[in-house]
């Protein structure tokens, strides 16, 4: 892997996004609006927005970066640019690294904007650390990118690519403990939830909500999210083949 090639790729991907003003607007404005909406409907229930809103901060970068990455890599595969790149002196690791860095940066920027509005304007208030909650959001952005990369290899068309989102993310959203506490779920489902990275992300976010410092529980769960992300990146990397059959 080369730092120079990774950064060149990151720069190119961010340039592509920068030219797409509508996507930029959607990435930053949409989750902010949704958080505002959530704050509004929970206005009359004290503490409800704090309990729901903070873990959700990480879910937006997960979903958005998943979608953006899976469509971007699918376009790279179908337009021929991937084939062209792989015939050039660049490694798969450089491409993967470039994608991971570009969309983590974008996800971080998104998390910062949504957090600023949520804590500053919508009155989100937690006893723990907003910074540590934000760190979970960054890990979720990386996870979304990694899962999106892996998912795009299963899709032949953009229609299929967008369907990968409900396939790969909805079961996680349902089972991660956000809707029903995991220990109240049927044992089989609780057992399944251990294999879903979003579970660990929600655990870490909830820990950061009540603690101002990094606890062992927080670190272990954040580490698990990152481990899932790296594993998904590696699987995605295997699908970037230099040669076709």
């Amino acid at each position: 892997m080369s730092v120079r090639l990774t950064l060149a790729t990151t720069r190119r991907i961010l340039q592509q996004i920068r030219h797409d003003h509508r996507t930029l607007l959607l990435i930053f404005a949409l989750p902010t609006l949704l958080m505002g909406l959530l704050a509004l409907i929970l206005m009359d229930r004290p503490g409800a927005f704090d309990a729901w809103g903070a873990p959700l901060l990480g879910v937006f970068p997960l979903i958005v970066m998943f979608l953006v990455t899976s469509v971007a890599t699918l376009r790279e595969r179908t337009s021929g640019t991937l084939e062209r790149l792989l015939a050039m002196p660049i490694g798969r690791g450089d491409l993967l690294g470039g994608y991971a860095l570009a969309f983590s940066l974008l996800g971080t920027a998104q998390a910062v904007v949504v957090s600023l509005f949520s804590f500053g304007l919508f009155g989100l208030d937690i006893p723990g650390s907003a910074l540590l909650v934000g760190l979970v959001a960054v890990a979720d952005a990386l996870l979304g990118t990694a899962l999106g990369l892996a998912a795009s290899s299963l899709a032949r068309t953009e229609f299929q690519a967008v369907q990968m989102m409900p396939l790969m993310l909805f079961p996680q959203l349902i089972l991660c403990g956000l809707i029903v506490p995991r220990d109240e779920m049927p044992p089989v489902l609780e057992w399944l939830s251990w294999f879903m990275p979003l579970t660990y992300s929600i655990n870490a976010a909830r820990e950061a909500i009540v603690n101002t410092t990094v606890t062992a529980y927080y670190a272990a769960n954040l580490g698990a999210v990152l481990a899932f992300a790296l594993a998904a990146l590696a699987i995605g990397g295997l699908t970037l083949r230099r040669q076709t059959r």
Binding site: A8, T9, M88
Partner: peptide, 20 residues
């Protein structure tokens, strides 16, 4: 197939490949 990034300018495309 053109194998170019359609959402980048001509110069940006060439500069990326030149960096590689």
């Amino acid at each position: 197939a053109p194998a170019l990034y359609s959402d980048l300018t001509v110069t940006e495309n060439l500069q990326y490949f030149a960096r590689i």
